[in-house]
């Protein structure tokens, strides 16, 4: 890929409680692209995102964002870097004590000296982009799951971040909302010239919109490539994942004692 990289991950290792969570991860996220990280639940995807956000320190290796190694920054530098990032949390994580309007305006009020009038215009523009201009006075508890996710998307985009991370943006959504969110992620990314990282296990929806995919299992990268390459790929793991087969390299049974022994049967 010719575009320069915004995020580089080199030989990233992370051990939690002596249990290796990430092992030797190498990833590159070029500017302007939409990259998906896929894998099963608990394979270290969210941990990886937390490393990019600088919330965790790697055991070995580094994450470089916009030319800076994240874990070498002090608290102030880290906060400055985070202003260039946006993150959409799994269930939106809207502030429940604020209206939709205030949620989107939150970062503008915290980080800028813009007048309320300017903020108003910006908020209306952001909400319009996700089609929820009419819902600005509602509280998060009054929104449906899909609407909340769209508001959270507008909030993530509030300060036009260089990098947007999505943690399971499709989790728990109906098919229509899923398509809407997917399209919004793609169009907003292209309109803002941002770079996006999507962590997901919803393969069908994300293969439609992303440029490049990394597959992870048990803390290592097992496959990577463009969506077309992956659809054509015949590795056991990828086939099981892409087509949702029940048994394969990922076993149906959690490791345990022998079945006959567990039932107290004498062989």
């Amino acid at each position: 890929m010719p575009a320069p990289a915004l995020v580089e991950i080199r030989d990233l290792n992370f051990t939690y409680d002596k249990r290796p969570v990430l092992q030797g991860i190498n990833m590159t996220f070029p500017k302007g692209k939409l990259v998906a990280i896929m894998g099963l639940s608990g394979c270290g995807k969210t941990t990886l995102l937390r490393h990019i956000g600088g919330a965790l320190k790697p055991t070995r290796g580094y994450v470089k964002f916009d030319g800076q190694v994240m874990h070498e920054l002090d608290a102030k530098g880290l906060y400055l870097m985070r202003r260039k990032m946006g993150m959409l949390f799994q269930f939106g994580a809207l502030f429940t004590d604020m209206s939709v309007y205030d949620n989107v305006a939150f970062q503008m009020r915290e980080h800028t000296d813009l007048s309320e009038e300017m903020i108003h215009n910006l908020v209306v523009m952001k909400l319009n982009a996700v089609g929820l201009r009419g819902a600005q006075h509602m509280m998060p508890s009054e929104l449906s799951g899909g609407m909340a996710r769209r508001v959270a998307l507008a909030r993530t985009m509030a300060l036009d971040p260089m990098l947007v991370m999505y943690d399971e943006p499709f989790a728990g959504l109906d098919p229509i909302s899923m398509t809407v969110i997917g399209d919004l992620i793609r169009s907003l990314n292209d309109a803002l010239g941002a770079t996006s990282i999507i962590v997901t296990h919803d393969i069908q929806e994300s293969l439609k919109i992303v440029d490049y995919v990394y597959f992870m299992a048990n803390g290592v990268i097992v496959a990577e490539g463009t969506p077309d390459e992956l659809r054509a790929c015949d590795t056991d793991f990828v086939r099981q994942f892409v087509h949702g087969e029940m048994d394969g390299p990922v076993p149906f049974h959690y490791p345990g004692v022998d079945y006959r022994q567990a039932l107290n049967l004498r062989a």
Partner: peptide, 21 residues
């Protein structure tokens, strides 16, 4: 209860990611 729920629904993590203490 309010702060515990904010934590459970990742609002606090979200705030940290927005560079707000």
């Amino acid at each position: 209860a309010e702060i515990g729920l904010m934590k459970a629904t990742e609002q606090i993590s979200a705030m940290e990611m927005m560079a707000v203490n």
